[in-house]
Amino acid sequence: MTDHQGQLMIRTDGSADELFGLLEWFNDDDELRGRVDMPTTPIRPGQMGDLADALVVALGARGIAPALIQSLSTWFTHRRSDIAVTLTLDHTELTLDAKRVKTPEITQALQTLLDQANKPQ
């Protein structure tokens, strides 16, 4: 997969439906709408098509860290099934497991990861 500089990649260990559900959740948030996308891969000959395996959050110049942290934390608290979410930013990965994390832990871990995007390279 290509390196997405300035983009946060989000993957789940659940089905593609879980990922689509998370995308819909983000699209219901005014601050995140249009900033989260599900990139598609080109269909190769002989394939019926690939399911998307990740969401991409465009971090951009306008910081969206607080909105992303709040939205993802709330999404975790509304989950009815166990799921793990892996966030990747600049080769750093963070995995959050719905069974084991509490909202303050999610907030702290996400803030630390997203702060890396704001550091000068």
Rank of each mutant, 00 (worst) to 15 (best):
R80T: 07
T86I: 06
G49H: 04
L72N: 02
V85G: 01
N27M: 10
Q7G: 04
E31M: 12
P39E: 02
D17W: 00
T41F: 00
R79G: 06
D97Y: 10
Q116F: 04
M38V: 07
Q108W: 03
R35K: 15
I43R: 07
M48R: 10
N27V: 00
M38C: 09
T107A: 11
T2G: 01
D3K: 09
R11Q: 12
E24A: 07
V85S: 01
G49T: 03
I83N: 02
S81H: 08
M48E: 03
G63D: 15
G60C: 06
L68T: 12
A84P: 02
A61I: 11
A98V: 03
D28H: 14
L8A: 07
S73Y: 05
A84G: 14
H91K: 15
R35T: 11
I69C: 12
D82H: 07
E93N: 15
A109N: 13
G60T: 13
T95N: 05
Q47T: 04
L19S: 02
E18A: 09
P39I: 02
P42D: 03
R11D: 01
P39M: 03
E105M: 11
T92W: 06
W75Y: 15
D28T: 09
L22H: 05
F76L: 13
K119N: 11
A65C: 10
L96I: 12
E105H: 10
F20Y: 04
S81W: 00
T41L: 05
L23Q: 12
R11W: 00
L23R: 12
Q108V: 08
G21E: 05
L32G: 11
A117Y: 12
E18T: 04
N118M: 09
R11A: 02
K99G: 03
R33Y: 09
D29C: 14
G6Q: 10
Q70L: 13
E31S: 14
A98R: 08
G14V: 01
M9F: 01
Q70I: 04
Q121F: 09
D90Y: 09
R100M: 07
S71K: 00
D30G: 08
A61M: 10
L113A: 02
L55S: 07
R62W: 04
P42W: 00
L110K: 08
E24T: 08
G63F: 02
M9Q: 14
H91V: 06
P42Q: 02
W75G: 05
P66H: 14
V36M: 08
A84T: 11
P120Y: 06
Q111N: 15
T77R: 13
L32K: 09
R35G: 04
L110P: 06
L8V: 10
